[in-house]
């Protein structure tokens, strides 16, 4: 080190440059003054899950069917679901309780990835502070439910993709349903034809054994398999 330390002066020139440029270069003063501006959120931001509903009514338009896939997939197990029941204690496809403990949730988005009904999505709301650190941080079903319009507002691209997917699914279901109806109609026609033929046969010959009669009855009982909500994972 001689009388004048070159390295130190170089460093001081850098800090002086930063000092001066902070007055006129945006890049040198990146501070966002928080309560007035909120620029940290973009449309890809995720924070805490919420539930999407379609249309006006929260309960009617709810996409969630309480299948509990998200509850199983949640790594920190912060989701708690109870299925709703009607007056006759018969379970209906809707959650009665849907709680997310936001103090436990780690915003990993795995629940979103498993959801087959496009129901649970990530919110970008980040001002979640609360005076009550137990009940206040437990977000229940009614607070979680947010409209599809809100979803479009915060994640426009993703929401549009979701809507397209749902539309495609509905269309697919429609064609499937049509195909099924067609099939059922054909089957019914065939059956009618068979029944007519049988009646003709019966009329022709009433001396058939009861064993064949029983076999025909069981055939008629066979019913179409129930529509299974569990679809394949993405």
């Amino acid at each position: 080190m001689s009388l004048i330390a070159k390295g130190i002066l170089q460093g001081m020139a850098v800090t002086a440059k930063n000092f001066i440029q902070s007055y006129y270069k945006k890049e040198r003063l990146p501070t966002v003054e928080y309560p007035e501006e909120k620029s940290t959120v973009n449309q890809f931001t995720r924070n805490i899950p919420f539930l999407v509903y379609d249309g006006e009514d929260e309960i009617e338009g709810m996409r969630c069917t309480a299948c509990k896939l998200c509850e199983k997939a949640c790594p920190p197990q912060c989701i708690y679901i109870i299925k709703d029941t009607d007056e006759n204690d018969k379970p209906i496809k809707r959650p009665k309780v849907f709680d997310i403990d936001s103090s436990v949730c780690m915003s990993c988005q795995l629940c979103v990835e498993v959801c087959p009904f496009e129901s649970i999505r990530m919110d970008s709301e980040f001002e979640l502070s609360n005076e009550n650190r137990f009940e206040g941080l437990l977000i229940n079903r009614d607070e979680l439910l947010k409209s599809n319009e809100y979803y479009h507002e915060i994640h426009p691209i993703e929401a549009q993709e979701t809507d397209d997917r749902i539309a495609a699914k509905i269309a697919e279901a429609e064609t499937k349903k049509k195909a099924r109806e067609e099939k059922a109609r054909l089957a019914a026609e065939a059956k009618q034809a068979a029944a007519a033929m049988k009646a003709a046969e019966e009329a022709a010959a009433e001396t058939e054994t009861s064993a064949t009669e029983q076999a025909q009855q069981s055939e008629a009982k066979a019913e179409a398999p129930e529509d299974n909500p569990e679809t394949k994972n993405t």
Partner: peptide, 14 residues
Amino acid sequence: DEYETLLKDNEIVI
């Protein structure tokens, strides 16, 4: 570059 000018040759850092 800026970072290195600030730190690399600084006598005290050395």
